[in-house]
Simulated scan of single mutants.
Amino acid sequence: MMNFEQERQKRKEQLAGAFRIFSRFGFDEGNAGHITVRDPEFEDHFWVNPYNMHFSLIRVSDLLLVNHEGEVVEGKHEVNKAGFTIHSELHKARPDVIAAAHAHSVYGKAFSTLGRLLDPINQEACAFYEHHSLFDDYTGVVHDLSEGQRIAEALQMNKAVILQNHGLLTVGGSIEEAVWWFINMERSCQIQLIAEAAGQPVFINEKDAKHTAKQVGSPAEAKRCFAPIWGRIVNEQPDFLS
């Protein structure tokens, strides 16, 4: 069984790798976006990316440890204020959440402008069937803790929330889950936009959508889907582990 130091190192390596994965998928835009992981020992602290550092350059040694008061406890960089505002409130509201991911991805941003949920039009989208929500109160860059609280309330006990006019946010009991749900949700937004541009998609019926959700929407399945992506990034960019 791993001790705190071993678990902390594992989470930090996965977090640094997650940023490389996001960059590989094109989920990097300026200084927007953040992924966090709760510290295994100090549960009111989380690790996060430095502000204004490109995802493709982040290493384990660059990560910041931040407490729920917004203080950088470990690390030499500045913290993203919007990232702190959103993630601190999420981690407070959801003790079960180990990791959370948000980025300004192209299709997530586009779909978010529709102010609606994803429909069960294919197998992958069923991972979010009855397990995602909508936050329909965009007021600008999130710098107010009260808005972070409202986002957490909108998320409820779901694995994802669509931030209207903003983008996507996913959570999980591990980095593997939060990252895979984000990748899957971004692709699901892309597929739905393409399908609706071509015509009227046919929905999977409620019974089969619920059954498929159990098959493709579990934490174990998220970890299985994350594994080959992790293997690829470790092989291609091992420098992030330093």
Rank of each mutant, 00 (worst) to 15 (best):
A154V: 03
K81F: 03
G70E: 06
T113E: 03
H102T: 01
M53D: 01
I162N: 02
E7P: 00
A110G: 05
D136C: 04
F19C: 08
A213K: 13
C126Y: 04
L90P: 07
Q237H: 11
F84N: 04
D137T: 12
L63P: 07
E221P: 01
I204K: 05
S105D: 08
V161P: 00
A213N: 10
I98W: 04
F42P: 00
R116V: 05
E186K: 11
W230V: 13
E69M: 08
N122G: 03
G108L: 15
D62Y: 08
S56T: 06
K10W: 09
S112I: 03
D39I: 07
L168G: 07
F42I: 00
F182G: 03
D28W: 05
I233R: 15
Q14F: 13
N67W: 12
G217I: 13
D137K: 14
W230P: 10
L155G: 00
S56H: 10
N67A: 07
T36P: 06
I21C: 06
L134V: 12
E153I: 01
H166T: 07
G148S: 07
T36L: 02
P201R: 06
Q200C: 01
A195L: 11
L169E: 08
R11L: 10
E186V: 08
E177W: 04
L169K: 10
I175A: 03
P219K: 11
G17A: 09
N184L: 14
L193K: 05
R38E: 09
F46Q: 08
L193Q: 06
V48M: 10
L65S: 03
H54M: 11
H68F: 15
F111C: 13
I151Q: 07
H34S: 13
R20W: 14
P238F: 14
D137E: 13
G17F: 09
A213Q: 12
E13P: 02
A32D: 01
E236S: 15
Q149R: 14
L57V: 04
N31M: 14
A99W: 07
G231R: 14
V179I: 11
A99H: 05
M157Y: 07
K81L: 09
G26L: 10
I58Q: 05
V171L: 03
S133W: 00
E186M: 08
L169Q: 06
D28M: 08
E153C: 01
Q164D: 01
V234T: 13
D137S: 09
Q164V: 00
T85V: 10
H143M: 15
D144S: 13
I204Q: 03
H34Y: 04
F240M: 09
S61F: 00
G115V: 14
A18E: 05
W230A: 09
G83K: 08
S146Q: 14
I204E: 05
A99Y: 06
E221L: 03
W47K: 06
A227D: 15
E186L: 07
F182I: 10
Y138S: 05
E43T: 13
E177F: 03
A110E: 14
A82V: 02
T139N: 09
H34C: 03
N3S: 07
H91C: 05
M53F: 07
I58F: 04
M1L: 03
